[in-house]
Simulated assay, not measured.
Amino acid sequence: MTLDIITTEAAFTALEPVWDRLLDSSATHSPFLAWDYVRLWWEHCGNEYRMQIGVVRDERAEVVGIAPFVIGADRGDSRQHLRHLGFMNGLGDVQGERMDILVPAGREAEITPLLASIISKTSGSWDVVRLNKVPEDSPNFPYLLEEMRRAGTTAGVLNQSECRCFDLPPTWDEYEKSKTGNFRRNVKRHWVQLFERHQAEVVRDMDLDERVKHFFALHSMHWPDGVSSFLRPPGNKIHEALIKKWIPEGKVIMPFILIKGQPAGSVYVFCHKNEMLIYQLGWDKQYISLSLGNNAVRAGVMEAIERGFTMADFLPGEYRYKREWSSYARFVSDLECFHRWHPRSVVFRILRAAKRRLAQAQADPVKPAAAENPEPEAESA
């Protein structure tokens, strides 16, 4: 097998015919690694990065592995001067939630070490390797971490994020029966109130332009301007294009709850293989008493069950409603290592260590030492 490192847009575009086929054969199921998503990310964000895409070919010159890497800056003031090696769609303001390299399931021991060697081969070009949101159950995980330990220093898991999940049975009633009595009563009560008292309806076939406009409007009610990267460029441009392309292809579920004919709540769900990945919610705050967020999730889950999906994932982020809907969790981790001697890497590590020591000292001030020979307390009369 051979390893090539792709650095041009023409060579990247030439991978389109094999990209999704390779993703579908991989152990990690993720729409964030799909060709459409990665291509749109590069189209809107690529001017800030350099491609370093690893491609492994077998003896017949067929592509059997892809490591979609780039080099550039990551978000955060303290990191803006560091050269990061990371995933396409894994650095900057717009980042995927489940990231990995593309290797056929069962062939990781054969292919992944060769792909991961890009980390060492490109070490002259990066100060830090930051591989965000790698599933901990990915067969590629240990090989990536091993190569990072070989190529850099302080390699390990920087952050671990919990993704709340639940299995989807063949019917909504079966799912409902699997939950606690309190959850069932609350979900049913809010659903009944919505339709009996407010003449609501669930709409699945809205015009695509209208979907985009209304979903962003509902989502923005919960996030001030500039806070959510989903609402500002380039994130909104990427997702507008994805919604319009993927809904007709069945890769996105986005039902709307209408009250008095007006959109009042919705959920943005990615569909990949047999999984639904619940990505964003939006609902009108004037209907807060109707639990429109939970009702939007229910509308999405019911549609996913009808389409035969078998698993739901809320993706990273800890909220009470996710715990209430879910029955187990899976985890994603941010992997990081630093170049051993590049000046910017060394300076960053020194400053970060000093900052952490200062924060620890402020949190745990040193108590004054007791006197060696304290005077005895006066005896009571």
Rank of each mutant, 00 (worst) to 15 (best):
T2A: 14
L3V: 08
D4H: 08
I5V: 11
I5M: 05
T8N: 04
A10Q: 13
P17I: 05
D20N: 15
D20S: 09
D20C: 10
D20H: 03
T28I: 12
H29G: 04
R39W: 02
E43H: 05
Y49V: 01
R50A: 15
A61M: 03
E62H: 07
V64E: 10
V64T: 14
V64S: 11
D74N: 15
G76I: 08
L82K: 08
H84C: 15
G90M: 03
L91C: 03
G92M: 09
M99L: 15
M99H: 07
A105K: 14
G106Q: 07
E108G: 06
I111M: 11
S117P: 03
I118R: 06
I119N: 12
S125W: 04
W126K: 06
V128P: 01
R130K: 13
L131V: 03
V134G: 07
V134S: 07
S138F: 09
P139A: 09
P139D: 06
N140E: 09
F141A: 01
F141C: 02
P142A: 02
E147K: 14
R150Y: 11
T154R: 15
F166W: 04
L168Q: 11
P169E: 10
W172L: 10
D173H: 13
S178E: 02
G181S: 12
G181P: 05
R184H: 08
R189F: 02
Q193E: 12
F195R: 12
H198K: 04
E201H: 03
V203E: 12
D205H: 10
D205K: 10
D207S: 05
R211I: 14
V212M: 01
H214I: 00
F216C: 06
H219V: 06
H222K: 10
W223T: 04
S228G: 10
S229A: 07
F230L: 13
I238Y: 00
H239W: 07
E240T: 08
L242P: 00
K244R: 08
V252I: 13
I257E: 14
Q262R: 12
P263K: 02
V267N: 07
V267G: 05
V267Q: 06
Y268K: 04
Y268V: 01
C271N: 08
L277A: 11
Y279K: 11
G282Y: 02
D284P: 00
D284T: 00
Y287K: 06
S289E: 11
G293D: 08
V297P: 05
A299V: 07
I305R: 15
I305N: 14
R307T: 01
F309D: 10
A312I: 03
L315V: 03
R320P: 00
S326E: 04
S326D: 04
A329N: 14
R330V: 09
S333C: 12
R340K: 13
F348Y: 15
R352K: 12
A353Y: 06
R356C: 01
R356I: 04
K367F: 01
P368M: 10
P368Y: 10
A370S: 09
A371T: 07
N373L: 07
P374A: 09
E375T: 06
E377M: 02
